[in-house]
């Protein structure tokens, strides 16, 4: 892993976030709508074969922002389809994203038990 990897991660990750901010400020979509939009766009770009090259270029810069969730779902579905056909297509997406989703539920719950809102 070289400095170049970090630079690309910074630039691509930053640009994705900047684009989302632009959407919020210009269209006045709520952040929730924007997040939904970006996840869906990630899925679309993934199916078009455009997101995978981005992850190869930027590493975490492409896999940490939310569109990668759509990407991971699509890639998982396609991989499932290769293995088991149609049923794999349906199940593969959530299989591929099970780790971060379960981490989110588990830690979300744990945090709620441990902490109280501070305001």
């Amino acid at each position: 892993m070289s400095l170049t990897n970090f630079v690309w991660a910074f630039v691509v990750g930053g640009l994705l976030c900047a684009a989302a901010q632009l959407v919020v400020d210009v269209t006045r979509l709520t952040p929730a709508h924007t997040m939904v939009l970006f996840v869906s766009l990630g899925a679309a770009f993934s199916a078009l074969g455009l997101y995978e090259p981005l992850t190869q270029l930027a590493g975490a810069g492409a896999t940490i922002p939310l569109p990668s969730f759509g990407h991971a779902l699509v890639q998982g579905a396609l991989e499932g389809a290769r293995r088991e056909g149609f049923l794999g297509l349906v199940a593969g997406g959530l299989e591929a994203t099970a780790l971060p989703l379960t981490a989110a539920i588990g830690f979300g719950y744990l945090m709620a038990v441990v902490f109280s809102p501070r305001g």
Partner: peptide, 10 residues
């Protein structure tokens, strides 16, 4: 939003 949610206000 919930108070700990990170939302920017216009």
């Amino acid at each position: 939003y919930p108070v700990e949610f990170g939302a920017q206000r216009p």
